[in-house]
């Protein structure tokens, strides 16, 4: 989990080289070159139909690009196997409220990866689960059904699930859709805190340009078609090779 101690510790986690995506002869994306480096916070903003979700899906391997190359952690996405290094937080509205799963079950499912197939969960799974529940302050609701929680609580559950493997990169797809303004503020505060103090790299798709600009600045680093990329780097002055903070340090002290 530690940052790789090399000359340039801010290694690219995601590299896009001449990535194209077209759908039925229509170019959604053309020759996109971009990289996400360690400890970046990248906000991807664009109107509906700009291709934000498509881009995100390509980045996490859900969809192949029609041209160009995507590399994750220095490896071509086709060969990439270390999926536990990436935490994924989906859109909240993907959840069916009647789904009979507890918070505990949902958060634990973050541990189910290509490497755990055919295996029982390791002994430290319980510790990891407790840690993730504690960090997101959802221990009290651990045995509640996910559908009975408020939107903000559900978002914390999904964040806890994404964090349980202590990933290096968190990918968030419109995480605040359908959540009231106050809860959104709290959520942004939380992920900012995680970015600044826990050395996690963020990639977030959002339509909420105001909140992103507050943190990432008004000038996009890059624009491709209708998609804008905002980037902020955390702790440029930190030594390379410094390890991640322990996740058991509560993240959310100031956020409630």
């Amino acid at each position: 989990m530690s940052a790789i101690p090399t000359a340039d510790c801010h290694q690219p986690m995601i590299e896009l080289r001449d990535v194209c995506f077209s759908y039925k002869d229509q170019h959604v994306m053309k020759d996109l070159n971009f990289s996400v480096k360690e400890r970046d916070f990248v906000g991807i903003v664009g109107s509906n139909g700009a291709g934000k979700t498509t881009l995100l899906k390509m980045l996490v391997g859900l969809m192949p690009p029609t041209g160009g190359e995507i590399r994750l952690f220095g490896e071509s996405i086709r060969q990439f196997r270390d999926w536990e290094r990436i935490g994924y937080v989906p859109q909240k509205n993907a959840l069916n409220m009647l789904f009979p799963a507890t918070v505990r079950e949902v958060v634990t499912s973050g541990l189910f990866t290509n490497k755990s197939i055919f295996r029982r969960l390791s002994r430290d799974a319980k510790a990891k689960l407790d840690d993730a529940l504690q960090v997101m302050r959802i221990e009290d609701i651990a045995d509640k059904r996910i559908g009975r929680l408020s939107g903000g609580q559900q978002q914390r559950v999904f964040l806890a699930r994404a964090m349980i493997n202590q990933p290096d990169l968190l990918v968030l797809d419109e995480p605040t859709v359908g959540i009231d303004a106050e809860t959104q503020d709290g959520f942004f505060e939380l992920i900012r805190h995680m970015h600044q103090h826990h050395n996690i790299t963020f990639l977030m798709v959002s339509h909420d340009i105001d909140r992103l600009e507050d943190y990432l600045g008004k000038e996009p680093r890059q624009q491709n078609g209708k998609i804008k990329f905002f980037v902020r780097h955390s702790h440029d002055d930190l030594d390379c090779g410094e390890t991640n903070l322990q996740h058991s340090i509560p993240l959310v002290g100031s956020v409630e």
Partner: peptide, 8 residues
């Protein structure tokens, strides 16, 4: 989708 992102 989450299952796919986990490499399943």
């Amino acid at each position: 989708d989450a299952a796919a992102v986990s490499g399943l």
